[in-house]
Design a protein around this nucleic acid. Structure first.
Length: 192
DNA sequence: ACATCGATCTACT
DNA sequence: GTAGATCGATGTA
């Protein structure tokens, strides 16, 4: 039986949770239709981590990271892009999982329109691409992932061997291997 | 107030 | 492989 992930799912070590979301299906109910994809790349951001938005305390932008687990943290960056995270750990402990790539599943024509690209591998192979494809923006910041607008399905499948690498686009803590993707699905990730 | 820069993407060489 | 786009959040004064 395939159902939504429960809030308990997000109450664990954030690196473990980042590995556990691999293979799950992210669903966005938009007014133009449903878009969804299988999560094939993730990164963990921990509170004592210099690369984490919340490591210097709460600000207007990162407020959602300090809230309850199982909610979305969406931020705007580089003047162009939105990035989607899942908040982990109890309220007050600001940690999150960045979603970096999806294998497109439902609403592929809508994703093509949103992205202005046709090839499947160009739709969701990066954190800014997948939010654009699925139609995710700041209106989803703080959204409860146990609601009906944006949620994760427990697809239950085994993703196989998980590869751990340094995170992309950060200068600090490169010794921490907190970027994850399943070896069999490496074709969909943002970069090898 | 102002300067800097970013958990990126695209186009071009 | 490299550079330009683009603009809000953040840090410094």
């Amino acid at each position: 039986m395939i159902g939504k992930l429960e809030r308990d799912f997000y109450l664990r070590d954030t690196a473990d949770a980042a590995m556990a979301v691999l293979g799950r299906v992210l669903v966005h109910n938009t007014c133009e239709g449903v878009t969804s994809g299988r999560i094939v790349e993730s990164e963990a951001y921990l509170r004592d981590d210099p690369a984490c938005h919340a490591c210097r305390g709460m600000t207007a932008r990162n407020r959602a990271m300090f809230g309850e687990p199982g909610r979305a943290y969406v931020y705007f960056t580089y003047g162009n892009h939105y990035c989607l995270n899942f908040v982990t750990q109890p309220a007050g402990i600001a940690e999150a999982i960045l979603v970096r790539a999806l294998e497109p599943l439902d609403g592929i024509e809508l994703m093509r329109r949103n992205r202005g690209r046709t090839r499947l591998v160009d739709l969701c192979s990066g954190p800014g691409k997948l939010t654009q494809a699925l139609g995710i923006d700041l209106s989803l910041n703080g959204e409860d992932l146990l609601g009906d607008r944006l949620y994760l399905l427990d697809d239950g499948g085994d993703v196989g061997d998980v590869i751990a690498r340094p995170r992309v686009g950060i200068k600090e803590a490169t010794d921490r291997l907190w970027r994850f993707y399943p070896a069999p699905q490496a074709q969909w990730v943002s970069r090898r």
